[in-house]
């Protein structure tokens, strides 16, 4: 490393932003012609220096001050939403629960091979104004939507499911996951699509479990398993 190199080095910043007087600049230019290391350094500093002109001089003093912080309330709201896969939907006054899925995600999987786990809101039983919930599945194939209702019945819970966008004829198995942690079959249906009406038929199923005892709903449509982030 030449003494010239070392001496020139600290002038590269001023060179890069055009702050050297003509004599100094000539000396640096001469060194740059013979030193590739300094050339590279000077060029990267020139690019960094050019970026600085993007900053509004009026705000430059505020760079020493801490950034404005979002309220802690925002953090609580966001964290709550992240616990539930999607934000709470409208309340349903009659004690039913409605849920729906609609999440076009790139990199879709074969639409026939999907299994979904739907998790329902926390066990506040019949007649107490259960909140409906929406659910999102990062792994739901593009174009597939699932909607449905859970409704308290005298003999258990009625389950209405409508899927859309799957391969016609796909066999769908529906289960409920109970608060006791067991997985109980609630019936099967085949996805059909009415090409005249351009909509799918809802499947009407039921389970003997009370709505208040059901934690989540599982739909398997094909061999693979995808779950919500819980």
């Amino acid at each position: 490393m030449s003494p010239e190199h070392r001496q020139i080095r600290e002038s590269l910043g001023a060179w890069a932003v055009g702050h050297l007087d003509p004599d100094e600049k000539a000396a640096v230019d001469a060194h740059l012609r013979s030193c590739s290391e300094c050339r590279e350094e000077a060029e990267s500093l020139r690019q960094a220096g050019a970026l600085i002109s993007l900053v509004d001089p009026a705000i430059a003093d505020s760079l020493s001050e801490p950034l404005p912080r979002p309220s802690p309330e925002l953090g609580r709201r966001v964290m709550a939403e992240m616990r539930d896969p999607e934000p709470a939907a409208e309340k349903m006054a009659d004690g039913r629960r409605r849920w729906w899925l609609a999440l076009p995600v790139a990199g879709a999987l074969a639409a026939a091979a999907v299994s979904l786990v739907l998790v329902l809101g926390g066990g506040d039983g019949e007649g107490t104004g259960n909140s409906g919930q929406q659910f999102a599945f990062g792994s739901l194939p593009a174009g597939v939507t699932i909607t449905g209702n859970l409704e308290p019945k005298a003999t258990g819970t009625g389950i209405e499911v409508r899927v859309d966008g799957m391969k016609p004829g796909t066999l769908c198995r529906v289960y409920v996951k109970t608060s006791a942690g067991t997985l109980e079959p609630a019936g099967t249906f085949r996805y059909r699509y009415d090409t005249d009406e351009h909509e799918s038929y809802p499947a009407t199923l039921s389970t003997a479990w009370d709505l208040s005892e059901i934690d989540s709903l599982v739909i398997r449509a094909g061999p693979e398993t995808f779950e919500t982030g819980l």
Binding site: P70, S71, L74, R77, V78, E81, M82, P85, E86, P87, L103, V105, A106, G107, A136, G138, S139, G229
Partner: peptide, 19 residues
Amino acid sequence: RAEEAVQECFLKAWRSRAS
């Protein structure tokens, strides 16, 4: 409005985290 935007941003991030 900034809080609204950040909330929406993380909601979208949450939904699309698989991608």
